[in-house]
Protein backbone atom coordinates (compact mmCIF):
# COMPACT_ATOMS: atom_id res chain seq x y z
CA UNK A 1 0.00 0.00 0.00
CA UNK A 2 2.70 2.38 1.05
CA UNK A 3 4.63 1.94 -2.17
CA UNK A 4 1.52 2.57 -4.24
CA UNK A 5 0.91 5.83 -2.45
CA UNK A 6 4.49 6.88 -3.09
CA UNK A 7 4.15 6.17 -6.79
CA UNK A 8 1.06 8.34 -7.03
CA UNK A 9 2.83 11.26 -5.40
CA UNK A 10 5.78 10.86 -7.72
CA UNK A 11 3.53 10.80 -10.80
CA UNK A 12 1.77 13.92 -9.63
CA UNK A 13 5.07 15.71 -9.14
CA UNK A 14 6.26 14.74 -12.60
CA UNK A 15 3.17 16.25 -14.17
CA UNK A 16 3.31 19.48 -12.20
CA UNK A 17 7.01 20.16 -12.99
CA UNK A 18 7.02 22.94 -15.55
CA UNK A 19 9.51 22.52 -18.38
CA UNK A 20 10.93 25.85 -19.50
CA UNK A 21 12.27 25.86 -23.06
CA UNK A 22 13.56 28.32 -25.59
CA UNK A 23 13.47 27.63 -29.30
CA UNK A 24 15.80 29.59 -31.57
CA UNK A 25 14.61 29.83 -35.16
CA UNK A 26 15.60 31.77 -38.27
CA UNK A 27 12.58 33.63 -39.64
CA UNK A 28 10.34 31.58 -41.90
CA UNK A 29 13.06 29.20 -43.04
CA UNK A 30 11.68 25.70 -43.74
CA UNK A 31 13.40 23.86 -40.88
CA UNK A 32 12.45 26.59 -38.42
CA UNK A 33 8.76 26.36 -39.40
CA UNK A 34 8.95 22.57 -39.08
CA UNK A 35 10.66 22.84 -35.69
CA UNK A 36 7.88 25.06 -34.30
CA UNK A 37 5.17 22.72 -35.57
CA UNK A 38 6.94 19.61 -34.27
CA UNK A 39 7.62 21.12 -30.87
CA UNK A 40 4.07 22.35 -30.45
CA UNK A 41 2.76 18.88 -31.27
CA UNK A 42 5.15 17.28 -28.78
CA UNK A 43 4.18 19.74 -26.04
CA UNK A 44 0.45 19.26 -26.68
CA UNK A 45 0.75 15.51 -26.51
CA UNK A 46 3.28 14.95 -23.75
CA UNK A 47 3.55 18.05 -21.60
CA UNK A 48 -0.10 19.22 -21.54
CA UNK A 49 0.00 22.65 -19.86
CA UNK A 50 3.13 22.10 -17.83
CA UNK A 51 5.56 23.92 -20.09
CA UNK A 52 6.70 27.39 -20.97
CA UNK A 53 8.04 28.00 -24.46
CA UNK A 54 9.72 31.11 -25.73
CA UNK A 55 10.54 31.42 -29.40
CA UNK A 56 13.50 33.62 -30.36
CA UNK A 57 13.96 34.65 -33.98
CA UNK A 58 17.72 34.97 -34.50
CA UNK A 59 17.20 37.17 -37.57
CA UNK A 60 15.59 39.74 -35.31
CA UNK A 61 17.62 39.13 -32.16
CA UNK A 62 21.00 37.78 -33.28
CA UNK A 63 22.83 39.23 -30.27
CA UNK A 64 20.60 37.36 -27.86
CA UNK A 65 21.31 34.05 -29.60
CA UNK A 66 25.04 34.73 -29.60
CA UNK A 67 24.96 35.66 -25.92
CA UNK A 68 23.18 32.38 -25.19
CA UNK A 69 25.93 30.49 -27.03
CA UNK A 70 23.69 29.44 -29.93
CA UNK A 71 25.67 28.53 -33.05
CA UNK A 72 23.08 27.06 -35.40
CA UNK A 73 19.30 27.17 -35.76
CA UNK A 74 16.82 25.68 -35.27
CA UNK A 75 18.03 24.93 -31.78
CA UNK A 76 15.98 24.03 -28.74
CA UNK A 77 17.33 24.77 -25.28
CA UNK A 78 15.80 23.25 -22.18
CA UNK A 79 16.39 25.75 -19.38
CA UNK A 80 14.67 24.12 -16.41
CA UNK A 81 14.43 21.80 -14.61
CA UNK A 82 18.14 21.15 -14.56
CA UNK A 83 20.15 19.61 -16.18
CA UNK A 84 19.80 21.80 -19.23
CA UNK A 85 19.87 20.24 -22.67
CA UNK A 86 20.16 21.19 -26.33
CA UNK A 87 18.58 19.71 -29.43
CA UNK A 88 19.57 20.88 -32.88
CA UNK A 89 17.50 20.36 -36.03
CA UNK A 90 13.84 20.43 -37.01
CA UNK A 91 12.83 18.32 -33.98
CA UNK A 92 11.22 15.61 -36.10
CA UNK A 93 12.70 12.90 -33.87
CA UNK A 94 10.19 12.99 -31.02
CA UNK A 95 12.10 10.48 -28.91
CA UNK A 96 15.32 12.45 -28.82
CA UNK A 97 13.42 15.66 -28.03
CA UNK A 98 11.58 13.98 -25.15
CA UNK A 99 14.81 12.46 -23.88
CA UNK A 100 16.46 15.88 -23.92
CA UNK A 101 13.50 17.40 -22.11
CA UNK A 102 13.68 14.64 -19.51
CA UNK A 103 10.20 13.29 -20.26
CA UNK A 104 10.14 9.52 -20.01
CA UNK A 105 7.41 7.73 -21.88
CA UNK A 106 5.57 5.00 -19.99
CA UNK A 107 6.23 1.57 -21.54
CA UNK A 108 2.49 1.15 -22.35
CA UNK A 109 2.29 4.22 -24.61
Amino acid sequence: MASKRKKKVAAKEAVTTVVVMRLYIAGRAPNSVKAIANLEAICRQHLKDSYKLEIVDVCEHPRRALDDGILVTPSLAKLSPTPGAHVIGNLSDTHSVLAALGVHLAPAT
Binding site: I25, A29, A65, L71, P74, G89
Partner: peptide, 11 residues
Protein backbone atom coordinates in the same frame (compact mmCIF):
# COMPACT_ATOMS: atom_id res chain seq x y z
CA UNK B 1 20.97 17.02 -37.75
CA UNK B 2 23.42 19.02 -39.80
CA UNK B 3 24.03 16.12 -42.17
CA UNK B 4 20.30 15.65 -42.61
CA UNK B 5 20.02 19.26 -43.82
CA UNK B 6 18.01 20.36 -40.80
CA UNK B 7 20.01 23.54 -40.23
CA UNK B 8 18.64 26.90 -41.41
CA UNK B 9 21.17 29.41 -40.18
CA UNK B 10 24.62 29.74 -38.62
CA UNK B 11 25.41 32.53 -36.18
Amino acid sequence: AFDAGEIDAVM
